[in-house]
Design a protein around this nucleic acid. Structure first.
Length: 775
DNA sequence: CAGTGAGCGAGCTTCCGCTTGACTT
């Protein structure tokens, strides 16, 4: 036992710091908050000055016991939780939960984990900042009140087990509103004119693209312009050269890492965080939940050394980045490698890729600007007010581009890409062209959000924290407010008029538009929940709401206002809204009358029912009960028509016979299924139960029947290896070890070599085994 | 586990932010 106990928030941090502090210090981790409001009810005494009822979290009881024991035996307890609002509160809760002797405690903090920072912190102990703790209590209490008073309203008005909250409800609103914008979007088009020029003295006829500075609003105008181009003499009217530069992006924060890893590696937000956590725990990167772009001096020095030795002094440029994002608390460094000399690491493919991304981004952030020369050549046209513009870009010095280029959310327009390298032009030089084309171009509606771009939007609005971005994205999907999906686009025709060899030609071609890959769409339920909240609680889902209360939390932190007073002002306004909406008997179901069923002459409605979106034929209050049928994810509430609605009542239907037995398709409480004899087989999401044929049904049945446990496949060449099926699905057994396989592994087509590759991937080794080995 | 949806009422659901753990063939 040592004289000093240091408590930090995470075990990985504890391990590192223990090395810095030497044998007089024991460093332990409390693993985040140890006390909180219990889940079962609101646990805030609304009639008694908002007194919170904190309890020790069940999962932290063992840790609290252990810390108590250490604290008792130590002369001093150093509370080294993070240097932000939550960190301060964690320290205070530790004092309360561990019942610490006030004379024993020292509060210290450091926002980078380096030996010098830690040793310096030890020299500067202070008291717990009660104002900051109170700001956290206000935040906690407000979130609990909003969440636990809004959610029950949704259970009553819409359906059970729904939720609402300060953060998630805004996230849903963003998605719903974007969808509305897209729906409202009025697609227009115009004609852009592109010309492939070449120099008259160039026999190879290397072409470069020029675009007319004007777009024509219709085909006739475009055609008229093109015919004027016949036999027209083009020449270079103006040449403009502009030196410019590009600077590297700041090192990663949680949010920017999630965005880049989504764009460059295709990771979902949760996957990025999972892998980053693995890198953090194995000591390869710094802490991954941060809003800071700051690098420690030590990190900058290490970074410079690598840049100098690999690229030379010319590539070096020391930069200090400043956080722009709202409400940033900067308790940590930016996300960076711990050792810059390692560009590559050992690990799984995913770990390697994510690490490499972080390495490049951090290194690039300390490198020189890229110097670029932009050229714009103007070429005359038959209409004196328009010119063809040929744009070029040459990188004169690559600088940070040598290592890293940030990607953009919006894909570049392939026609609009600048010519990278242009030949030398002379003023008034005559130019020939190969062809000129006027192409119909439709305007683009705003883009749907990806998980990562939603995080970006939340961060910009100051809503949510690095530790909650990923969970929030998953909550709104779990509640069924939002789905992340890929959807097929539609076709439309584009008109192209081209001028080749002085001849005008008009052609049509089909273009696919609106294809979406892994984008967020609101569900009917999400739309209705949002409707309810905007009818009664506009102020809560207002984008400014969080920003405004953050200002008040800041005032609490500065000791200017008392936290209970702030909550009281809020609650006095909020609670009447709750009462008012609870009093209105109106249910929110999104009900819509589609028309009359021709066969029974009753009204056909669609709405969101207790079990999801349904079609209803007949009136709710009729003595004869109405009939119901699920929408089955095939249609949305506002798109389904009468005919489609009635077709949903065609179940159960027979689709033919297999082995002489009738096969029935039907919809049950667990979704659409195929039934053969007494067995049920779920129809997968990608098959439309209205259109399923016997062949597909047979497939589904055989796949399920194939199940059972035991060996699925063996290889002649290596009897040690077998593909087996267990309780949790397919896995590989090799000698006495079990290995996880990719979800999409098809045992029929896999080769021995592929199996061996899986075994070699450290990711697939069974965790149970590894733990046993460690003990 | 395989066709619920009225209305009544029991008892359940729910927030945001800090952190990892765990017995998976």
């Amino acid at each position: 036992m040592t004289k000093n106990l240091v408590i930090v928030e995470s075990p990985a941090k504890a391990r590192t710091i223990e090395k810095y502090l030497g044998k007089d210090f024991t460093v332990k981790s409390c693993n985040g908050h140890v006390r909180d409001l219990p889940k079962k009810d609101i646990s805030i005494d609304l009639k008694n000055n908002y007194e919170p009822n904190y309890v020790i979290l069940v999962e932290k009881k063992a840790i609290v016991q252990e810390l108590k024991k250490y604290a008792k035996e130590s002369e001093k307890v150093w509370l080294a939780t993070d240097e932000d609002r939550e960190g301060e509160a964690i320290s205070w809760h530790l004092v309360e939960a561990l019942n610490l002797d006030k004379n024993k405690i020292c509060r210290i903090s450091f926002n980078e984990i380096t030996k010098s920072a830690v040793l310096k912190a030890i020299q500067l102990p202070r008291e717990i900042n009660r104002n900051l703790v109170d700001a956290q209590q206000a935040r906690r209490v407000l979130d609990r009140i909003v969440g636990y008073q809004l959610s029950p309203l949704l259970w009553k008005k819409i359906k059970p087990a729904l939720s609402a909250g300060r953060v998630q409800s805004v996230a849903v609103r963003i998605i719903v509103e974007r969808e509305e914008e897209i729906k409202k979007f009025d697609t227009k088009y115009n004609f852009r004119v592109l010309c492939n020029f070449f120099k008259t003295d160039d026999n190879l006829k290397n072409t470069f693209l020029g675009e007319l500075s004007h777009r024509f609003s219709n085909k006739e105008e475009a055609k008229a312009f093109l015919s004027e181009c016949i036999n027209f003499e083009f020449f270079v009217k103006d040449i403009e050269k502009k030196p410019t530069y590009r600077s590297p992006s700041a090192p990663f924060t949680t949010s920017s890492l999630q965005q880049e890893s989504s764009r460059k590696l295709g990771f979902a937000v949760s996957k990025t965080m999972l892998i980053a956590q693995q890198l953090y725990e194995t000591g390869k990167i710094t802490y991954m939940r941060t809003d800071s772009v700051n690098l420690s001096d030590l990190a900058i020095k290490m970074c410079q050394k690598v840049i100098q030795s690999r690229f030379g002094d010319k590539y070096l440029c020391t930069r200090k980045y400043v956080t722009k994002s709202k409400g940033a608390q900067e308790a940590h460094e930016a996300i960076r490698p711990t050792e810059f000399q390692n560009q590559e690491i050992e690990g799984t493919k995913e770990q390697k890729n994510l690490y490499n991304l972080i390495w490049k981004r951090t290194i690039a952030s300390q490198m020189s600007n890229a110097e670029i020369e932009k050229t714009q050549v103007s070429v005359n046209s038959p209409n004196p007010s328009f010119n063809f513009l040929v744009k070029g870009e040459v990188v004169k010095f690559d600088g940070f581009l040598r290592v890293y280029v940030e990607s953009m959310d919006d894909a570049e327009d392939e026609n609009g890409k600048d010519n990278k390298l242009l030949p030398d032009f002379k003023l008034n030089e005559k130019l020939n062209y190969h062809d000129i084309a006027a192409i119909q171009k439709y305007s683009q509606p705003p883009a749907r959000y990806t998980e990562a771009s939603l995080v970006k939007s939340l961060e910009e609005k100051g809503i949510g924290r690095p530790s909650t971005y990923a969970p929030t994205i998953s909550t709104i999907q779990k509640r069924g407010y939002v789905v992340c999906e890929s959807r097929k686009g539609s076709e439309r025709s584009i008109t192209k008029i081209s001028l080749i060899n002085n001849e005008l030609k008009e052609s049509e071609k089909e273009e696919i538009y609106g294809t979406e890959k892994n984008k967020l769409f609101p569900t009917d339920l999400g739309i209705i929940v949002n409707q309810f909240l905007s009818d009664y609680f506009q102020n809560i889902i207002d984008y400014q709401f969080t920003a405004n209360i953050e200002d008040e939390f800041d005032e609490i932190a500065q000791g200017k206002i008392e936290w209970r007073k702030m909550i009281d002002v809020f609650y006095k306004k909020f609670h009447p809204q709750v009462e008012k909406s609870a009093g209105d008997s109106k249910k929110y179901s999104g009900e819509r009358l589609l028309g009359v069923d021709p066969s029974c002459r009753k009204n056909v409605y669609v709405k969101v029912g207790k079990y999801g979106p349904v079609v209803q034929i007949g009136e709710t209050n009729d003595p004869e009960k109405p009939k119901f049928a699920s929408l089955l994810n095939l249609y949305s509430l506002d798109e389904i028509n009468l005919e489609q609605a009635i077709e949903l009542f065609s179940f159960p239907r027979s689709i033919g016979k297999l082995d002489g037995v009738e096969v029935i398709v039907n919809v049950g409480p667990y979704g659409p299924y195929v039934k053969k004899e007494k067995s049920f087989y779920q129809i997968p999401k990608n098959i439309n139960p209205l259109k399923i044929n016997l062949e597909q049904a047979k497939d589904i049945i055989e796949k399920k029947e194939f199940k059972g446990t035991g060996v699925v496949k063996e290889f002649e060449k290596n009897k040690d290896l077998a593909i087996r099926r267990g309780r949790f699905g397919i896995y590989i057994k090799y000698k006495n070890e079990n290995y996880k396989v990719p979800k999409d592994l098809d045992p029929d087509n896999v080769t021995l070599e592929e199996c061996i590759a899986i075994i070699d991937d450290p990711n697939s080794k069974s965790k149970g085994r590894r733990r046993k080995g460690k003990r």
